[in-house]
Amino acid sequence: MPEIIQITKEEKGLKHMKTKDLVLCAMFVALIAVGAFIKIPVPVVPFTLQFLFTMLAGLLLGPVNGALAVVVYIVLGLIGLPIFTQGGGPGYIFQPSFGYIIGFAVAAYVNGKIANAKTHPSYRRLLGANFLGLFIVYAFGMIYYYVISNFYLNSPIGVGALFLYCFVLAVPGDIVLCIVAAIIGKRMIPLIQGGRLG
């Protein structure tokens, strides 16, 4: 009889953890969607908080659930919800900037994997994870932008102009967000790490 009671408690705990993961994933889907429309008005190239929330999804939810939150966001946008920066719908895959959105999902998995390899990751580990995520997002974004612009939209862009407009002018704000995400992650990861899956 005690063994049966013990199993029941474990099953209840597992169910609670799954429910908590679902709630956190849903919360981050909403944050990522909202973040696309929160613009920080800095000179030259304003930036949004979308990248911040995709990084935090990886750091706080772990690699699998963090990437899942971003994938759900992408799917919702592609089926027509206007949650991307310039709207939504399946045709959005032909927007030159869609590569960055794909990069968000990959980066959330990678930075979540690196950050959560330790129970209490250091600032150095968190920053390293975030900067690797930044590299992934820009790699996907710039390659996709180049391909769509040059081979689909017939609006050629050279490598030099691509590097200037899609990286040099855009990346300073995201570097700041990498630092902010590391600070938030350092405080929040120990609080939620014990109560989640994957």
Rank of each mutant, 00 (worst) to 15 (best):
Q86Y: 14
Y144W: 14
G103R: 01
G158V: 12
K9P: 08
V42L: 15
A36M: 03
Y73E: 09
F37D: 06
Y109V: 02
N65A: 06
I93F: 11
F140P: 14
T54H: 07
G173C: 03
I38N: 05
A67V: 00
A57V: 06
I179M: 12
P46N: 13
N150T: 12
P156M: 10
F167E: 05
T48F: 00
F167K: 00
I114P: 03
H120V: 15
Y152P: 08
G62E: 07
S149R: 04
A161W: 02
I4G: 02
H120N: 15
M27L: 15
Y123N: 08
P190C: 04
F94H: 00
N130P: 14
I79A: 04
F84T: 02
G13P: 09
T54L: 12
A26E: 01
A69F: 06
G87Y: 05
L76K: 02
S149P: 04
I114Q: 01
Y152W: 13
L132W: 00
M17Y: 07
N154D: 14
T48C: 01
A139V: 15
M55N: 08
H120M: 13
M55H: 11
V23F: 14
L197V: 14
Y145R: 02
V34K: 01
F51V: 14
Y138I: 06
Q193Y: 13
F37L: 07
S122E: 08
A33N: 00
